[in-house]
Design a protein around this nucleic acid. Sequence first.
DNA 1: ACAATCTAAGTTGTGCACAATTCAATTGTG
DNA 2: CACAATTGAATTGTGCACAACTTAGATTGT
Lengths: 144, 144
Amino acid sequence: MSETPRLDRQVCFALYSASRAATAVYRPVLEDLGLTYPQYLVLLVLWENDPRGVKELGEELGLDSGTLSPLLKRLEALGFVERRRSGEDERRVAVHLTAAGRELSVRASAIPQRLADAAGLSADELEQLRTTLGKLTAALHSAV
Amino acid sequence: MSETPRLDRQVCFALYSASRAATAVYRPVLEDLGLTYPQYLVLLVLWENDPRGVKELGEELGLDSGTLSPLLKRLEALGFVERRRSGEDERRVAVHLTAAGRELSVRASAIPQRLADAAGLSADELEQLRTTLGKLTAALHSAV
DNA sequence: ACAATCTAAGTTGTGCACAATTCAATTGTG
DNA sequence: CACAATTGAATTGTGCACAACTTAGATTGT
């Protein structure tokens, strides 16, 4: 009794659609700041803890150097970060916020509320969704 | 009282991470079939309803011709679909499954269970997640 | 001391996403 | 009928993701 899986029953597709819809809501706001969504994620990490190594950024975001290296170069070209080789370990590159990069956090602080407004879900539902997604992501990572 | 948004509190990042983790679970299985995840999504639609126009595929998946045109060419090069200009309306291109494309659905039917197994969530939780994500996606689309 | 190993970052190549544009075919309107 | 407006698909260009590989610098084991 093998049956063809249906698109509208797939959790995977629901995740894929929701994720793209969410970044689409962020896109125009981030465009005002001159940022893409992954660039914004990198800055979120740096606003919490500056400076960070490329490797640490990758661990927090789940991205490798193949994604981060060119992204960080673009953030540097935009004047929001600086990359400096570590003195102790010449292999490491520390990513520092510039003054402009730090200032951006003020203008960005209103962004998350925007998704909450557009979501059509209660604060409780959003909180529960976030928790479930966190559990799911952890389980999927350990499954591979 | 503007506070810096924290990465780990963002629903948007939770969606982005979960979506990438889910496609990462699918990746090795799909690789055996010679498919990428978006290619698999296109085939899911065609297995339900064959043939489909490029525009219809785009509406179901939320993708535009800029994404679909080259993707469909690759699926055609792999021998899973054929693209034919419509006779009635020369602008339209109908995407047909080939025999090989139809056969693939049998080998693909076991794939969704794999995510369910790896998810670490009960069937109820998965079902509720899917429902919440559907509501969220719809709300986000209408918000833009 | 120094060769083998490991590690951090960068590079290359493929395949999405998505905006913007192009082009041909069709439709709507005077 | 003529012709402007619209539509469906393709193309171009940018920026992720991710695999595979490269390179330079640090570590480890004798």
